[in-house]
Simulated scan of single mutants.
Amino acid sequence: MKEQLILDVLPVVSPRFDNFVTGRNDEAVSRLRAAAAGQSIYLWGEHGSGKTHLLLAATKQRGRYLNAATDPLPDPGEPVPAGLLIAVDDVQNLSEAQAAALFGLFNQWKTRQDTPDAFTLLTSGPCAPRQLHIREDLLTRLSWDLVYRLETLTDDERRSALLQRASDKGIPLSAEVTNWMFNYYARDMSALSSLLDALDRYSLAEKRSITVPLLKSYLQSRHS
């Protein structure tokens, strides 16, 4: 019960363009911010590079985010509303039926690309289109328009991203705690962000400030 009450009062930070640390990805982020009807963009990069964050940010105002592993894709036989932005994340996880649906969506996107009924189609995967193990005719369509590789953050950029997330959520994070996290914990941004959120919950439950001893206590509690 105490854990649930803590979860209920924690601030939720939604993925936005303004809380994404671009690093060396300025052009890709700028293109996504300005993605217009009639455009298609495929993002690729390793786990933790920010693909999901950016797709969620892009669909926040006028779009629909879909994860290929969990969400059904729209029926390609039904017209997509003009101006809608559709984002399909992790295309490497498409089932045969979903791959057929995305193939149909691309055909519809291409047919309407230069018309008043155009819509935006964003996709992502872990590697360049030609390296994906999905149907050949879909590989071609993923490259029909813009393709961007997302570069992973350097250590300095990761620190900046972590401190920004902490500031966003009102979590006081000292240099000592930050250094410990980077020296003794995974440097993947997803893992660091998850640790920060869990540490915030733990500090509230224990009614203690976030310090290195508290961090060690939390990690020990996970393995006890």
Rank of each mutant, 00 (worst) to 15 (best):
P11I: 02
P11W: 10
V12Y: 07
V12H: 13
S14A: 10
R16C: 04
N19Y: 02
F20R: 05
V21T: 07
N25V: 05
E27G: 02
V29L: 03
V29W: 00
R33Q: 13
G38S: 07
S40E: 01
S40R: 05
Y42L: 08
G50N: 03
K51L: 00
K51Q: 03
H53Q: 02
H53K: 03
L55E: 04
A58T: 11
A58S: 11
P74F: 07
P76E: 04
G83K: 08
G83D: 06
A87D: 10
V88E: 06
E96L: 15
E96Q: 13
A97D: 14
Q98R: 15
A99M: 14
A100C: 06
F103N: 07
L105A: 05
N107R: 10
D117I: 05
F119S: 10
F119N: 13
L122W: 08
L132C: 07
I134C: 03
E136P: 07
E136F: 04
D137G: 12
L139T: 12
T140F: 12
L142A: 13
L142M: 11
S143P: 09
Y148P: 10
R149K: 14
R149N: 06
E151M: 04
E151K: 01
E151L: 01
E157N: 01
S160F: 05
A166N: 13
S167M: 07
S167R: 15
D168S: 14
L173R: 04
S174L: 08
N179S: 15
N179T: 15
R187H: 12
D188M: 07
S190M: 08
A191R: 09
S193W: 06
L196N: 12
Y202N: 02
Y202S: 02
Y202C: 01
S203H: 04
L204V: 02
A205K: 06
P213E: 01
L214I: 00
L214P: 00
L214Y: 00
K216P: 02
Q220T: 06
S224M: 03
S224T: 02
